[in-house]
Simulated scan of single mutants.
Amino acid sequence: MNRITSLFGIKYPIIQGGMIWNSGYKLASAVSNAGGLGLIGAGSMYPEVLREHIQKCQKATNKPFGVNVPMLYPDIEAIMKIIVEEGVKIVFTSAGNPKTWTQHLKDNDIKVVHVVSSAKFAMKAQDAGVDAVVAEGFEAGGHNGRDETTTLTLIPIVREKIDIPLIAAGGIATGKGMMAAMILGADGVQMGTRFVASLESSAHIDFKTTVVNANEGDTHLTLKELAPVRLVKNKFYNDVQELYTKCPSKEDLEALLGKRRAKRGMFEGDLVEGELEIGQISGLIHDILPVETIINNVMNEFHQAQKETQQFQF
Rank of each mutant, 00 (worst) to 15 (best):
I281N: 11
D239A: 06
S29Y: 04
L7G: 07
V134K: 03
V113Q: 05
L226F: 11
I183K: 06
L7F: 08
N234C: 03
H104S: 15
P74Q: 10
H114L: 10
V212Y: 04
Y237Q: 00
N213G: 13
P165E: 01
K99F: 11
I172N: 01
K176I: 15
I285K: 05
D109T: 11
S94E: 09
G175D: 02
V113K: 04
K11D: 15
Y46P: 14
D127F: 09
H286G: 12
V113T: 07
S44G: 10
I164M: 04
I54K: 05
G38V: 01
Q280A: 14
Q311C: 12
I183D: 01
M123I: 13
A122K: 08
S29W: 05
V291C: 00
Y244C: 08
I294A: 03
S201V: 00
G17P: 15
G188L: 00
L72T: 10
A28K: 06
I79L: 14
A180N: 06
D75I: 08
E268M: 08
K235M: 07
N2Q: 10
K89C: 11
G177L: 07
S32W: 00
E136H: 04
E251A: 13
A186G: 01
K208T: 01
K81Q: 15
S118T: 15
I155V: 10
I79K: 14
I285Q: 07
Q311M: 08
I82E: 08
A180I: 02
D239S: 02
L152I: 11
V69A: 13
E200H: 04
F312W: 12
F8K: 04
A186K: 00
L226Q: 01
Q103D: 13
G145T: 05
G265D: 05
E251L: 12
Y237N: 02
P74C: 12
P248C: 06
L199D: 08
T150M: 12
Q311L: 14
E268Y: 06
L284G: 14
T293I: 13
N238M: 11
T209W: 03
Y244N: 07
E148P: 03
S198K: 00
L226V: 09
K120F: 14
I14C: 11
S249A: 06
I172F: 02
G145E: 05
K81W: 09
P13E: 09
G192W: 03
G142L: 07
Q55D: 12
D287F: 08
L7S: 07
F314H: 03
E254P: 12
G175A: 02
V84P: 11
S29N: 03
E48D: 15
M71W: 11
H303P: 04
N97H: 09
